[in-house]
Structures are given as C-alpha cells and as structure tokens.
C-alpha cells in the first residue's frame, strides 16, 4: 500500500478530474495507473502532481498511462517546440515523410493507431502517421 499512499493525491485528483476508465493496480512495488483524461488541462494537472510527489519522476514506482480523450475527427494541435511535425507513411520514423504540419497547426485525428503513433489528416488533405506526443487534443 505504500506506493498507493505516496500517490494518494494523484489518485484523488484523477477521480476529481473525472478521468474515465480509471484503473489502478500495484505490482512489484510499481503503481500502474491508467485512464482517459477529459482534457489536455486535466492531463497536465495530473502530470504536475506526479512531478510534485516524485521530484524528477526518477523513482520508477509509477506507470502513469493516461491518455486524453480524442475520438476520430477530433481536432489536434501540433505541439512541437518550434519545428514542423513529420507525417509519415507508416507508424515509425522509418516511414517516408508524406507531409508536414507546422508548429501550432490544427490537424484532424483519423485514428489512434497505438499509444505512440496516431493517424492524422492536415487541412491540406495530407494523411499519415504522426508521433502522438506532439499532438494535443483541443
């Protein structure tokens, strides 16, 4: 229970913020928390609590698998630092670059291929896979 106690504030916040499909389990000293946050704001808030409870997030005692609610057709903002986001033919950096989306541009979600790669479509009609980390549901 020690790990659950450590992250009690995070679990409470996940409930309060209405994280759906929230699931919590402890295995071999690692707390696994999964669910779907309703918004990017909720997602950021949960991660901020994680960073606060475990400064530097270096303890390795939490797997926080929270995604942000986004259905096909949802608008996603490109959140690269400043550069363009590559849109590729396959869900891997091995895939050919078939398009680019500028920093801050809005693209449309086609499907969540997996947790790391999402299929998106740009306003220009370019369709392909982009790294989910750089896409924020609006």
């Amino acid at each position: 229970m020690a790990v659950q106690d450590k992250y009690a504030e995070l679990l409470q916040a996940a409930k309060d913020l209405g994280v759906s499909n929230l699931s919590v389990a402890e295995q071999a000293g690692v707390l696994h928390v999964a669910g779907t946050a309703a918004s990017t704001t909720s997602y950021d808030a949960l991660w901020a609590i994680y960073d606060k409870l475990d400064p530097g997030m270096a303890s390795g005692d939490l797997m926080l698998n929270i995604d942000i609610k986004a259905d096909a057709g949802a608008q996603l903002q490109v959140t690269t630092d400043a550069t363009n986001l590559n849109i590729r033919s396959t869900p891997s950096t091995d895939g050919d670059v078939v398009g680019k989306a500028a920093h801050g541009e809005i693209v449309t979600l086609v499907e969540k291929t997996d947790d790391s790669w999402w299929k998106v479509k740009t306003a220009d009609g370019e369709e392909g896979y982009a790294y989910a980390q750089y896409l924020s549901p609006m």
Binding site: V30, W47, Y50, D51, G56, M57, A58, G60, M63, L64, N65, D67, D115, S116, A132, Q133
Partner: peptide
C-alpha cells in the same frame, strides 16, 4: 523536456531509469 520524456516513455509502456538524467 523531462516531463515530455516521461510522458513518452509511459505512453509506450516502457519502464525507465532516469536517475542519470
């Protein structure tokens, strides 16, 4: 960037050792 890295690792379901980061 640390936040981004941790988010990326966990969405890929990867355990990590970032004590030297």
């Amino acid at each position: 960037d640390r936040m981004k890295i941790m988010q990326m690792l966990m969405s890929a379901h990867v355990k990590s050792d970032v004590t030297k980061l």
